[in-house]
Design a binder for these strands. Structure first.
Lengths: 335, 335
DNA sequence: ACGTGGCATTGCAACGTTGCAAACTGGGTA
DNA sequence: TACCCAGTTTGCAACGTTGCAATGCCACGT
């Protein structure tokens, strides 16, 4: 028993295939009586439109791709939740791909090598430069999340990372901290986000008349808890340890928190901690994380709205859109 | 400039459309010289197969759906990461849908109302009973994650929740705890998972000759941090508070952990805590969570393998497959 | 009686691909 | 020389849907 199609419905309802199609797609043009009769048959035999055929005919499938480094990092998971919800609002479904931060995979996915016929892509780059993304932006329209402005021909939605980092650092300074470390630098990547945050951090220090200290700018391999533990351990082992740490992600901060705890270093008394992303786990950590909260919901909505506009008009110039953020002050770095 | 298709390639390469198709799908049947010439043209004009057309013709699209309550819960996020990876291994892509634990949405998604032409579904039910899932399992094959055995005609992959809960509770008993609470009961849902864990918990108590105490079996609305905080607050306010708590998810346990911390209750000294799921955040909490660790990777792999088999033969009887789990002992409930 | 216009319904073709079976090629064999 | 076979290549049709344009129908006004 193969799946029912328009023809099956049409035969049983005694109408043409086209009319059934109309009942499904534009009920208002069909006479009420006909519509009801056809609808009854549809329900009866459980007809469902064949998406592939529809997509082939219409030229679009209402499916978008979400390309992220890893879906299991809380930030991306939360973002994905918002993207999926916002997509549903628009009648789209979301296909998830993971790049694992591998530049080749990012390239492949953008090139559509594995592009499963999506109509558009929301791309959170890790290793690819904006220029390369711009160049590769081929078949399906792409919206880039994060990165810095002026990427060129691609649409981009992000928070002001530099300003956010400046605020976070300024908050620590306002709390009387003077020896503030930054954790999360990724020198081996051309990813701009970490660079932006580092820049903001340095600006805030400079504005307070403090000199940057190489020993306090800590590179990490990835942005997981483990990297935060390691980085913090290194900082605490310094002859002159910091009195505050600005972590570029909440995961790093949570790792740092644990590194402090196991060494008996008190947060925030001995070291204040600020994170970035405002993931759920940070709100319930002990102490709760002070963090930069990007408006993820808006980020997702704006990304999809932008994608929709570009799908409608591919000739639009590349746009750079800013999403608001807020510094959420909690226990790990109180006022 | 519309996207290149087989005909474009064929014309430029001076061969038939069918030969180009062969170069793409079965290179070995094409003579080396022809193959190379065609391949060159393909690369040149950047031809990519049209997935919709292929899917229409072949009758499958190599896309599966992952239907979960919420993709941003760490457990589901981690599971999704494994599913996406395992799917890629099989040449599939994954489409994510969220039910938000809404029974109607679960029904709709299963019925394929929004089923975007997926070839199969990995379904993590929340509110739907196995029987209902079984009944609804219509168009695309479904593999159910979790739930209890004997669901009927549907394939099911899960850990032995009851045994796992028994082990977790037994571990607390072995540590000398006698007043052990269980947090995570969901009386308003027909979901079986919580019930299984509760059963295991009770069995362990009974085996130790301890009576169950209603006050220690705490229902929750959802399974988030906030619910854990609330539940733990209630338990600590009891005239006779527990000396150990078994939480049905790590998120609940992390919430409970915080509730203890803000009240100055020491973990594990005053109260021991065991979680469930082994999410990354639990490994870096302070104290690190003792928890039941399901083999998520294997769970994902087995689910997809099962799905593949069912896609190959829809007449197979429903199978119940078990995935191993392990109790990971950490600081929140040491030996 | 006839034309007009609006509404409802219809047939045809095409989207890009692949299954099937037939057709062609060249060299080897009877 | 006629024939056959294996290796290549090809044409045709069909997957299920929808855009387009045309048709049929009926009530209405003149």
């Amino acid at each position: 028993m193969t799946r029912a199609n328009l023809r099956d419905v049409a035969e049983r309802a005694g109408v043409s295939v086209r009319t059934v199609s109309n009942v499904v797609n534009a009920p208002e043009v069909v006479a009420a009586a006909t519509r009801e009769r056809v609808q009854r048959v549809i329900d009866e035999i459980g007809y469902r439109p064949n998406i592939a055929a529809r997509q082939l005919r219409r030229g679009r499938g209402d499916v978008i791709g979400l390309v992220v480094p890893e879906i299991d990092s809380p930030y991306f998971a939360e973002l994905a939740a918002h993207v999926v919800r916002a997509a549903e609002e628009l009648g789209w479904t979301v296909l998830v791909e993971q790049t694992d931060g591998d530049p080749d995979r990012e390239r492949d996915l953008l090139d559509g090598a594995r592009g499963h016929g999506v109509d558009g892509v929301v791309f959170s780059p890790w290793a690819l430069t904006p220029a390369e993304v711009s160049r590769r932006a081929g078949a399906p329209p792409v919206v880039v999340l994060g990165e810095q402005a002026g990427s060129g021909h691609v649409d981009r939605v992000a928070i002001d990372n530099r300003a956010a980092a400046r605020e976070a650092t300024a908050h620590l300074l306002a709390g009387g901290r003077r020896r503030i470390a930054a954790v999360g630098i990724q020198p081996h990547l051309s990813n701009q986000t970490a660079g932006q945050r580092l820049a903001g951090y340095r600006e805030a220090l400079a504005a307070a008349g403090l000199a940057a200290d190489d020993a306090l700018e800590v590179p990490v391999d990835r942005l997981h808890h483990a990297d935060g533990v390691e980085a913090m351990a290194g900082l605490l082992a310094l002859p002159e340890p910091p009195d505050a740490v600005f972590c570029f992600t909440d995961q790093l901060a949570l790792g740092a928190l644990r590194a402090c705890a196991v060494r008996g270093v008190r947060v925030p008394d001995d070291v204040a901690l600020v994170g970035f992303d405002d993931i759920e786990a940070g709100r319930y950590a002990v102490p709760a994380l002070t963090t930069v909260a990007p408006d993820k919901e808006r980020l997702a909505e704006l990304a999809l709205a932008t994608l929709a506009e570009r799908m409608a008009d591919r000739s639009l110039p590349g746009r750079d859109l800013l999403v608001p953020h807020a510094l959420v002050v909690r226990e790990s770095a109180p006022t």
